[in-house]
């Protein structure tokens, strides 16, 4: 592994933002960077195993026109892109323990892409540079 760790905090649970995060993760993993992902609130909710591939909508700025463009583009689901990223590199995906509590979730409710749950201080143990918030 070389270069700084890509540290991503994912808050938004819409498919466009999660797809953008998955693409960044895959690119960083391909280029040999460690990736450290922290899932909060609606991003965490989107990783529930019973609904990970369901429609999570798009960000409000997409508008109806943008939503239609994204629907037409299709492409690989973001969960598959995260899975690929994990298969080629060192990618850890952590659930925020506070968000787990707020949403009433336990690890069994989450897709196996999520490695564990941890507190925010533990997340920062593995941060060695900037944190990107999506």
């Amino acid at each position: 592994m070389d270069g700084q760790t890509l540290s991503l905090v994912l808050f938004s649970g819409t498919d466009d933002k999660l797809n953008a995060a998955a693409v960044l993760t895959a690119g960083a993993a391909a280029m040999g960077r460690k990736v450290n992902v922290f899932l909060q609130y609606w991003a965490l909710d989107a990783f529930r195993s019973d609904r990970i591939t369901k429609d999570h909508g798009v960000a409000p700025e997409a508008g109806s026109e943008g939503a239609a463009i994204l629907a037409r583009h299709g492409g690989q689901h973001w969960s598959d892109t995260f899975r690929q990223a994990k298969s080629i590199g060192e990618v850890a995906i952590h659930a925020c323990s506070l968000s787990m509590e707020v949403l009433g979730l336990s690890m069994e409710d989450l897709d196996p892409l999520v490695d564990d749950q941890e507190g925010v201080a533990s997340f920062f143990m593995n941060v060695d540079g900037p944190v990107t918030f999506i």
């Binding site: 693409v23 895959a26 690119g27 391909a30 492409g75 892109t81």
Partner: peptide, 15 residues
């Protein structure tokens, strides 16, 4: 396949 699909496929094949 959209970005980064082709690269991911190449990495898999190389491995």
């Amino acid at each position: 396949m959209p970005c980064p699909g082709p690269l991911m496929s190449l990495i898999g094949a190389i491995r």
